[in-house]
Amino acid sequence: MSESMVRSVDVHKRFGRLEVLRGVSMEVARGEVVVIIGASGSGKTTFLRCINHLERVDAGRIYVDGELVGYREKNGRLVEDREREVARKRAAIGMVFQLFNLFPHLTALGNIIEAPIRVKKVPRKQAEEAGRELLVKVGLADKLSVYPAQLSGGQQQRVAIARALAMEPKLMLFDEPTSALDPELVGEVLDVMKSLAREGMTMIVVSHEMGFAREVADRIVFMDEGVIVEEGSPEELFLRPSQPRTQAFLSKIL
């Protein structure tokens, strides 16, 4: 159990001729909250998507809880896992998306219980019970049978968080969870994420919410052009960035 939750070793990824990740190595400890910042195109979203194998990596390794995700190692080479195996490993990694990606044809509760019932084979009654509790937790107990289209962006994102939590993940990935929200709705989503962090969930968050990063993050990682330029505690990174690129980026957003 001493193994870190996420261990990424020299991850490379290219889209056609564009090299998006050029050797990303980092570790995330159990219960740690890491916020990745960086300009758009710096590779932070792609890196996040590689962690649960929504993107294939071209080189390098990503271990989650000591296991490779999406691959087996065979004679030192990566072999892609069978679909079922990939799905099984993904089920333990929650992900929250910038555009929520709720299932529009299902109610709030329907969104939450779909995967537990289909993937984990949880009995419907039990899944509904757990789903209700999760909706209470994200402050939407009264929105049980409402469809996503009738919810505000902030409410949709909170349902999406509940949906991910319903699979009882050991790791949560957040891909710019508040950047599609109206400013007045950002707070309610960040509050849910804060309470999750307090409960000891391991979280990797791609975000531009500096207030949140300062308050909740154990560590900030600054990425630029597909590499990690600098990382450190919020204090170190925000107040005393050592790299010129970090300084330039922070001067633009702070």
């Binding site: 099984r88 998306f97 995967a115 993937v119």
Partner: peptide
Amino acid sequence: VEAGQMDAAKSLGMTNLQALRRIILPQAFR
């Protein structure tokens, strides 16, 4: 159907066929 729907379904541990049947096709149907 938006690509994000498949991403979300997969991130929850669904296989392609499960995602197609439960998430993609019902939306495509409309």
